[in-house]
Structures are given as C-alpha cells and as structure tokens.
C-alpha cells in the first residue's frame, strides 16, 4: 500500500514537472519570434536635415536633470574633441551627443545624434541578471536603479556603446542612459524632449511601423539623396530609433557590423546546453563511477562472502 501511494505521488510529481516544462518551452518559442510591441513608438533621425545645433543635447540635459556641462551647449568646439581617437560618446553626464563628420566629396559636414536606440530585444535587458531593465509597450527601454548590482554586463552587451556607469559615486552609483523620457513624457504619449527641441524636424516621432514607411517613402521620393537603408530597421533585431543617411552609414560613424538579429541569439547556443548538462551529467558520471569501481565492488562482495 505504502509503495502504491508513493508511486502515485511520484507520477503526480512527474506530470506536474512535465507540465511545467512544456509551459516554459511554450513561452520560449513565443519569445523566439518576438517582433516588438505592436504600438511601440520610435524616432526617425534624418541625417540630411541635422545642422548640429545641439538643441537636443540641451533639452535632454534639462529634462533629465543632468549636471551642467563644462562647455555650454552653443559651444561648437566640442565637435573637435577626441578621446582615445574617438569622437564624443554618452557618459554619466549626457544621455545624448551630436557628433560632426566631414565626408569626402560633400561640401558640408554631416551630424549624427546618438542616444539609446531602444532595441526591440535589448542586449542590456537580456544580459541583466537582476532584471533591472524593462522594455515598455510604448517602446522605451527603462532601468531600475533599485535592483542594479553594478556588474556592468549591460555595457559589455550593448552593441551601440550606450549605457554608462556613474563611476564617480562610491555609495550611489548607477547606470546612466537615455530612457526615451519615459517617466515624464513617453508614458503620457508625448515625444521626448530632444525631438520637441529640434528646430530642423530632423527627428520624427511616431509609431515604429509608420516610421519605417515614412523612411521608405523618403528614400523612394528623393532619388539619390539617401542610401537605400534604414539603420535600425533590422540592426540588433530592430530598434525604436532609426536613421536615414545621405551617405554610407559607416562614413558617419555607424557600426555597420552590428548583426541583423538580437544579440541574445549569440548566447542561445550556450543557454540550450544548460538543461542538457543538468540532466545528462548525473546519469553519465554516476554510470562511469559504477563502471570504474566495479572491480572493487566485486572484490568487497567476495570478501564479505568469505567472512560468512
């Protein structure tokens, strides 16, 4: 009787286990084909319209309450700043930066604004082991400083070099990055501060889907004025912020080697071996143990027999 009960219990446990397992696999296959939230918003940046006035930088600084910069926002000598051979990048005092690019064969320079691109399947989010990042249905990738441990894996994972760390603080460090003005604007349906500040309409705010159509239309209607590619439509699995450029993207500082799939895909090979190792190794090594110590086991058995 006792045996039967325990067997039934065992079966129940097994059923529950396999049910849980199938649930998790179901979730996973859903995640495989995630193509972003349907109503996610985005911004289309048109490099041909940007004049490098840095209004967006100033607006961002004010909206996000960031510290005042060393040089004022109307000082254009910042475009010549070079650190380690690199143009300016985001850091703990600025979530967005505009850089100037002299393109050979063009009579005027081009400007490129960088900020978080708000990926559909963000590498920062998927690499975070405390779930500090959230991709909101509105399209923003936001960050929760209350749970962050400061391991900085998100900075390793971001293919666009966007998240930065407040290294200067010993007791209150955190990741500093653009959050699409989610707290103050996006969640109420309003465009981010930088978009509103742009005097050139270089930044277009709208539904990501619509923006892709607008982008294609601009490429189609202005023959020869744009390269036929929307940067961010597929890069890193698709981003909410996208770019149009009149010249090849690598000429204006874009990394064109960023894969056209989510960064997470590169880690899946490893993630898939985890359950296999967890289940196969115990049996495999217990088996090897039994095989390897078989002779000893027989020996002791015979010895005890002899004692009898």
């Amino acid at each position: 009787m006792k045996k039967a009960v325990s067997r039934r219990k065992f079966l129940k446990g097994g059923l529950a286990g396999s049910a849980a397992l199938s649930l998790t696999t179901a979730k996973r296959s859903e995640a495989k084909s995630f193509e972003g939230y349907p109503d996610a918003m985005g911004v289309l940046v048109d490099l041909s319209r940007c004049v490098g006035c840095r209004s967006c930088e100033a607006a961002c600084n004010k909206e996000q309450g960031l510290p005042a910069p060393e040089k004022p926002f109307n000082d254009y000598s910042v475009f010549d700043e070079i650190h380690h051979g690199q143009k300016r990048r985001t850091d703990e005092t600025r979530y967005t930066v505009v850089n100037k690019y002299e393109v050979p064969g063009m009579d005027h320079p081009l400007f490129r604004k960088i900020q978080c691109n708000h990926c559909q399947e963000p590498a920062c989010l998927t690499s975070c082991f405390v779930n500090a990042y959230t991709k909101t249905p509105e399209g923003a990738v936001i960050y929760n400083p209350k749970v962050c441990v400061g391991c900085r894996t998100c900075m390793i994972a971001c293919p666009f070099y966007i998240p930065t760390f407040r290294y200067s603080s010993a007791f209150n460090p955190r990741i500093m990055k653009c959050i699409f003005c989610y707290d103050t604007r996006l969640q109420y349906g309003k465009p981010p501060a930088c978009v509103e500040a742009c005097p050139q309409e270089a930044l277009t705010f709208g539904k990501r889907e619509d923006l892709i159509n607008i982008g294609r239309q601009r490429i189609r209607e202005n023959k020869g004025q744009y390269v036929s590619h929307i940067y961010g439509e597929h890069e890193a699995g698709g981003t909410s912020w996208m770019y149009l450029s009149p010249v090849d993207f690598d000429e204006v500082g874009f990394d064109t080697k960023v894969p056209k799939e989510p960064i997470l895909n590169f880690v899946k090979d490893f993630l898939s071996i985890v359950p296999m190792v967890l289940t196969i190794w115990p049996a495999l090594f217990a088996g090897i143990h039994l095989l390897a110590t078989r002779k000893d086991a027989i020996k002791t058995k015979e010895e005890t027999k002899g004692d009898k």
């Binding site: 082991f129 779930n131 749970v147 490893f270 993630l271």
Partner: peptide
C-alpha cells in the same frame, strides 16, 4: 540580489 531580490534567470551571469 540576483539570488533573492530580483531575478533575471535568462541571463548568463545569473547562471
């Protein structure tokens, strides 16, 4: 934190 407070089980670092 990754053990008890806020879990991100899909991340390699979690493992």
């Amino acid at each position: 934190y990754p053990m008890f407070v806020s879990l991100g089980p899909a991340a390699v670092l979690f493992l």
